[in-house]
Amino acid sequence: MATRRGFIGSASGISTAALLGYSASPSAADTPLTDTTSAATASVTQQQAKDSIFAVNAGMRSNYATLKAELVKHLSPVIVVQNDAKGGRFTLVTANGQESVNPVAETFELAKSIAHVPLGCFSVIASYLADKIPNLPNADRIDPHDLLLVAFNDDKSTAWIEPLQAYAATLTTARKNLPAAGLPAALTTSCGNILDAALKFINASVQAKVFDMKSFEDFSASVYPDIRVNMEHAAQAQIKGVQDTMKAWRAKVGEAAWADLYCVVLSQWTTSVLNQNTIIIKDCMNAAKVATHLIDLPGLETPKDPIFTALDNLVRIVQDNIAAEMVFPKDTKVADALKGKEDLLSDEILIQLGGSAATTQSSPTYNTLSEGMCPVRK
């Protein structure tokens, strides 16, 4: 990608304004210095001069914010997705207002709840693990430093027993009530297997007053086939719920409006690549615009006002898309940087640090996978 310096420097004496396609009056730099201007400059302190320059950017930001605040009122139609434990909360934003639904059946949350049991046990015992990696099949994949950070408690301590027993009581109640939950037969069986194995691991560990990574991995590995069954049922529930909702909303807004639909998916960073809702939504949108209109917006935690956050970020994207082509009409690569996730200075910094100006590939998202490629490998 061309850098700003390379882009502007290639003008070979042509003014920047002319290069961008505009005409401009002679600047102060092109005007001979007279006694009057020299005297005026002499009366300005260095800080005042700097402040006047800072004011230029402050004025830009003010104008940008004003445009953004007005433009956000015209965003329509937009679907905002908040990923949550229930499979996602979907909000349709149109000129007529907003409506929100949780479209995924309870099977999704129930199946995932039991699938999370090994993680629940791990979260109790993790800080009491010995900080030495035992002879495990995946030992080379465990970072010794990270293990040391997680295993911050004394591995000889038994302080983990009480919280693990408390979790066992929760698992015992769930196991007792499982048949009454009305789950599909296969899901009931897999949930029962996971709960039984967890209780066996907990009881053995409490009785011996000791555990290690090997005993925990033996437990977690033993229930993996059952976890896959739970994942299958959760995925089926999510796909059906999301697709049904998208179909209903498509009929509501009409084909013409749906063709320009924006979808913003809010997620945590840890689930922002191949996000489950993004994968499902992709096939419900106008295929020609998925790459630009389906936006994954990862964050650290769920924002206090998810809808505002989504629309505020979307409006930045929309107005930057137009600004990019008009501010940089003669260099599409620089325009693409303004439109995308790159910082305009990134290539220049790479050059000055002795690196390459080539854009580095980030982790692939579903939007950038080859058409027809399945993102999940069995």
Rank of each mutant, 00 (worst) to 15 (best):
R5W: 13
G6R: 12
S12I: 01
A18F: 07
A28Q: 07
T34Y: 04
S38W: 04
A40F: 08
T41K: 14
T45R: 10
Q46C: 04
A49K: 08
A58N: 13
A65Q: 13
T66I: 03
A69P: 00
L71S: 10
L71V: 03
P77H: 15
N83G: 07
D84M: 09
A95I: 00
E99D: 13
V101M: 02
F108I: 00
I125M: 14
L129D: 05
A130K: 14
N138P: 01
N138V: 01
L147S: 11
D154F: 01
T158W: 05
T158E: 13
A159L: 13
I161V: 07
E162G: 01
P163H: 14
L164E: 06
A166Q: 11
T172L: 03
K176Q: 15
L178S: 07
G182T: 10
L195P: 04
L195A: 06
A197C: 06
A198G: 07
A198C: 06
F201T: 04
M213C: 03
S215M: 03
V229P: 09
Q236W: 02
G241P: 12
Q243A: 01
Q243R: 10
W249F: 05
R250C: 05
V253I: 09
W258G: 01
Y262F: 15
C263G: 02
C263S: 11
V273Y: 15
N277H: 09
K282Y: 08
C284K: 10
A287N: 05
K289C: 01
A291L: 03
H293Y: 14
L297Q: 13
T302W: 00
T309L: 02
A310W: 02
L311I: 00
D312K: 05
I317L: 10
I317M: 10
V318W: 11
N321H: 13
I322L: 06
A323T: 08
V327N: 11
K330G: 00
T332K: 15
L338V: 05
K341Q: 09
K341G: 00
L345C: 01
S346T: 02
I349K: 00
I349G: 00
L350R: 14
L353G: 11
G354N: 08
S356Y: 12
T359V: 11
P364D: 10
P364L: 07
T365A: 00
N367M: 05
P375D: 07
R377K: 10
